[in-house]
């Protein structure tokens, strides 16, 4: 699948500097920029498959074509899944009952439940049990479960992520998991590890797609070092959670 964004206009009515942006299956693309620079608007254009009918006047194509009006109007047929910071599980049921319900609504087999939970548990330090109540999950557990659920049950070829940095999950693993399934992943982020894991990042300014930065080899090296820091922090956090003490040797990076 190839997703194409054709530029529109920014908040002052000036044309996007980036006229055309192609994203192919398996690619992770970032969106960066200060608050109010139009990151969420761009995500929302993608989610709606904007056809020059949103405020930004951008157009989004799938494999070079505008998607059918029916695909746009029928959320069941829209190939998009979304994950964002302010999403929560609100249904008062157990993890396994809920996943069974979701699998059923998607016409999938119920034996996927164990797979989702196992996958989620590779993303969080606090294990999730099938009998846990959804509403009692921590932020990290929720985000891990949502990610695994998107990867396994929703299985949409396009995944849009709006800032998950503070969510307390192994975010790199989460991102790799989603992109690894051959999905197109677009992620709004200020987190250096996530931003540098992408192959390219779109820079937003006052509603304008001003430029695209290709992640350089040097940046990839920075990303690898940062990943080590990140894992180190996660291990320290886990040790403290387990009620252990932390030694100076461990704390030396």
């Amino acid at each position: 699948m190839r997703l194409t964004i054709l530029g529109g206009v920014d908040k002052d009515g000036c044309a996007d500097h980036i006229e055309t942006l192609h994203i192919d299956s398996g690619e992770i693309v970032g969106i960066v920029g200060p608050t109010g620079s139009g990151k969420s608007t761009l995500i929302s254009d993608l989610e709606q498959f904007a056809q020059r009918d949103t405020e930004s006047r951008r157009q989004v194509l799938i494999d070079g074509q505008p998607p059918d009006a029916e695909v746009r109007a029928d959320p069941r047929r829209k190939p998009v899944a979304q994950l964002s910071q302010n999403m929560h599980f609100l249904a008062d049921m157990t993890v396994s009952d809920f996943l069974a319900m979701h699998a059923k609504s998607r016409g999938r087999e119920e034996n996927l439940i164990a797979k989702v939970i196992d996958l989620a548990n590779t993303l969080t330090g606090e294990p999730i049990h099938p009998e846990h109540h959804l509403t009692a999950l921590s932020g990290g557990q929720s985000r891990a479960l949502m990610t695994a659920d998107i990867a396994v049950i929703s299985d949409s070829p396009i995944v849009l992520i709006d800032e998950i940095e503070n969510a307390g999950i192994k975010k790199q693993e989460a991102l790799k998991l989603l992109a690894g399934e051959g999905k197109i992943v677009v992620v709004v982020t200020h987190d250096p590890v996530l931003a540098l894991m992408t192959s390219r990042r779109v820079v937003m300014k006052k509603g304008n797609m001003v430029r695209v930065i290709q992640t350089s080899e040097e940046e990839q090296k920075v990303c690898n070092s940062l990943s080590r820091v990140d894992r180190w922090l996660i291990n320290l956090r886990e040790a403290i959670r387990r009620g252990e003490t932390v030694s100076a040797a461990e704390a030396a990076l």
């Binding site: 069941r76 999403m87 929560h88 809920f98 929720s142 929703s154």
Partner: peptide, 15 residues
Amino acid sequence: CDLVSQAEREVFRER
């Protein structure tokens, strides 16, 4: 929809 997970949205829609 911005407040709930993709999964819950999909279940809700089916309901």
